[in-house]
């Protein structure tokens, strides 16, 4: 029992927050709850606190919208939050698409797709290109470009307000991740993930690796949706400093050797280490 708890506690927490948030939003529309109203694009907490998607707000500003203060305050609150806990904590703890892509990744491991599709034909930097492109199109077309195609808000709105053909977006992403590209959507394409990677550059909550405990079993790398951030496994005792880490904590759970765990980043020391590391590369 204890081992099951140790192996799945963060996964359980994550699923609880993901589904719990969806449930609160759903309840607001279906039964008039006032805990969390709206959706991930913009919402109101307890009828007072505005919360808004900073990436959507950025696109809208670039598109030339004159925005009211509520949405700006909301975007600021969310940005501050993810500046501390790590931008991409959104991806693994809040985003509903994570449920879909995690399911695809699990099935991929179970049926062994990776055994015959070893090569990853795409760069993980695509997301930054898509991010740039979204801002460019927002500017040129005068509307928030990603918000019109975002499968994230499509699915999220779908759960709260009814799906329409929104289920198709979910299904396409599932198939894409399962058959075309491992961690394809979340790990390569999604500009919101790219945006939050940039937001979380200096965040405090980090996964820490202690090399002395590591037995090089590489279970962490198998399960990690952003493997490149775990380059230090078995080599160096340092925190995972790449902001592309989603703080999903699956690596911590699968590790049998207590070689990974959450810690608060020591900004000064780690900054130095980061720059040293870059120099060594």
């Amino acid at each position: 029992m204890n081992t099951i708890w140790n192996k799945y506690r963060y996964l359980l927490f994550r699923r609880t927050t993901q589904i719990g948030l969806l449930f609160l939003y759903f309840g607001a529309n279906a039964w008039g709850w006032t805990i969390l109203m709206g959706n991930l694009s913009s919402s109101v907490l307890f009828n007072i606190v505005p919360l808004s998607d900073p990436y959507a707000v950025l696109q809208m500003i670039i598109a030339g919208a004159a925005l009211a203060t509520d949405v700006l305050i909301g975007a600021l609150i969310i940005t501050m939050f993810y500046l501390v806990v790590g931008g991409r904590a959104f991806c693994s703890w809040v985003c509903p698409i994570n449920l879909v892509t995690d399911a695809a990744a699990m099935l991929r491991r179970k049926i062994g797709v990776d055994n015959f599709a070893k090569r990853q034909p795409a760069s993980r930097n695509i997301r930054y290109w898509v991010l740039g492109l979204s801002l460019l199109i927002s500017f040129a077309m005068g509307v928030a470009a990603f918000e019109f195609i975002s499968p994230i808000s499509m699915v999220h709105r779908g759960v709260i307000f009814g799906f329409g053909f929104g289920w198709a977006a979910m299904f396409i992403i599932f198939l894409f991740d399962l058959l075309v590209l491992k961690n394809g959507w979340c790990g390569h394409v999604c500009p919101l993930g790219g945006f939050y990677s940039l937001v979380g550059k200096n965040s405090l909550v980090r996964v820490h690796h202690s090399e002395e405990n590591c037995t090089l079993c590489m279970k962490c790398k198998v399960v990690c949706p952003e493997q490149q951030v775990l380059y230090m496994i078995g080599k160096e005792s340092i925190p995972v400093l790449s902001a592309e880490c989603t703080n999903c904590a699956r690596c911590i759970e699968v590790c049998d050797d207590d070689a990974l765990g959450f810690s608060i980043r020591k900004l000064v020391n780690d900054k130095k280490r980061e720059s040293n590391n870059e120099n060594n590369d």
Binding site: G32, G38, N39, S41, S42, A63, V143
Partner: peptide, 12 residues
């Protein structure tokens, strides 16, 4: 179209 953030608060 520029300004609506598609949050659905009006709908609710």
């Amino acid at each position: 179209l520029k300004t609506c953030i598609k949050c659905g608060l009006c709908v609710e």
